[in-house]
């Protein structure tokens, strides 16, 4: 009887603690997340329902008018299309290059640590450095790229990479992949190292060759990593802004206009905050949907403890 009462009272004493303590420890993070993420995102959605401009402090609620204007604007659909193509192409290339380099530097080779560090350099470089550096490499007179291409006999006249409509996408995607692949590589390296060496040993005993080991051990064990990298790349590439803005600002004309540059242009250059907010909300909603699909998929659920 005594014991029963004791456990009861302990339970009662513990119960509020179980709520209070997590609350107190999570408070800084939750407050920050609310103030810098949730509230601003909600504000952007709200702005998208108003006729707010950059200058006016007074604005009125206009419902979905910005969206109906948006959906009948061919520029919006073009930017949408550009964003999707850019996401698929750059994202796939990032995963391919990231996975390839991870496999390479996961092997036992001399100076492996050094190579890993070196391959991560593009990722630690600020985007402004990457962007300005590639602008210079693309230069028609003093750029290395044109020099190399001409000397290799591939072209006769220098290509104006950032002006030529045929090449400008390549010129934007190249540095994007250059800065993003190390992140993918890092994620894959982590996943590769978490594969138990026993699996490979057992496979060797069973007489599996390197390719079979790759196919039947490495790839299945990396399924989770591929899913996660895939999701992250869709998110990063679909919302990416910096490199395109530094390199082309969406140009020439609107050849490389993405949803993100379109939103920025409307808010900070065109001064139509409401309309730009609607574009930004569309980016947000697309990524929200992608994330929901991913979180609802069984693959991630098996990962949750």
């Amino acid at each position: 009887m005594q014991i029963l009462i004791d456990t009861d009272s302990r339970k009662r004493r513990k119960a509020p603690g179980l709520f209070l303590l997590p609350g107190a420890l999570l408070a800084p993070t939750l407050i920050i997340v609310f103030v810098v993420l949730l509230y601003p995102a909600a504000c952007t959605i709200f702005f998208s329902l108003t006729d707010k401009t950059m200058a006016d402090t007074t604005y009125s609620f206009i419902g979905l008018k910005n969206y109906s204007n948006l959906f009948s604007d061919p520029k919006f659909w073009m930017a949408f299309q550009h964003s999707i193509i850019f996401t698929l192409v750059a994202g796939s290339l990032n995963i391919l290059l990231g996975f390839g380099t991870a496999l390479l530097v996961n092997r036992a080779i001399p100076f492996r640590g050094l190579f890993r560090s070196l391959l991560l350099i593009p990722w630690v470089m600020p985007h402004i450095v990457t962007g300005l550096m590639f602008r210079w490499l693309y230069n028609d007179f003093y750029g290395y790229l044109n020099y190399l291409l001409i000397h290799a006999g591939l072209i006769e006249k220098p290509i104006l990479f950032l002006v030529d409509r045929a090449f400008v996408w390549l010129a934007v995607i190249l540095p994007t992949v250059w800065y993003e692949y190390p992140f993918v590589m890092l994620m894959f390296l982590a996943a590769l190292q978490s594969i138990s060496p026993d699996l490979y040993r057992a496979a060797k005993v069973d007489g599996a060759n390197a390719f079979q080991q790759f196919l039947h051990i490495t790839l299945p064990c990396l399924k989770q990593a591929f899913l996660l990298n895939g999701l992250l790349q869709i998110i990063f590439m679909f919302k990416s802004f910096n490199l395109v803005w530094i390199l082309t600002q969406g140009g020439p004309g609107d050849r490389t206009e993405l949803l993100s540059t379109l939103a920025y242009r409307h808010v900070f250059e065109g001064f139509s905050t409401g309309y730009g907010s609607a574009v930004a909300t569309v980016i947000f909603l697309v990524l929200f949907a992608v994330s929901i699909v991913y979180l609802a998929s069984p693959a991630i659920r098996s990962e949750e403890p």
């Binding site: 993070t29 997340v33 810098v36 993420l37 949730l38 509230y39 601003p40 995102a41 504000c43 952007t44 702005f47 992250l232 998110i235 679909f238 919302k239 802004f241 993100s260 939103a263 920025y264 808010v267 900070f268 905050t273 730009g276 907010s277 930004a280 909300t281 980016i283 947000f284 990524l287 929200f288 992608v290 994330s291 979180l295």
Partner: peptide, 18 residues
């Protein structure tokens, strides 16, 4: 929720932050 915040586009946040 914390994982999801990773998808918030900077362009969406910068408008109200400004």
């Amino acid at each position: 929720m914390i994982l999801m915040t990773y998808m918030f586009p900077a362009v969406t946040l910068v408008i109200p932050l400004y």
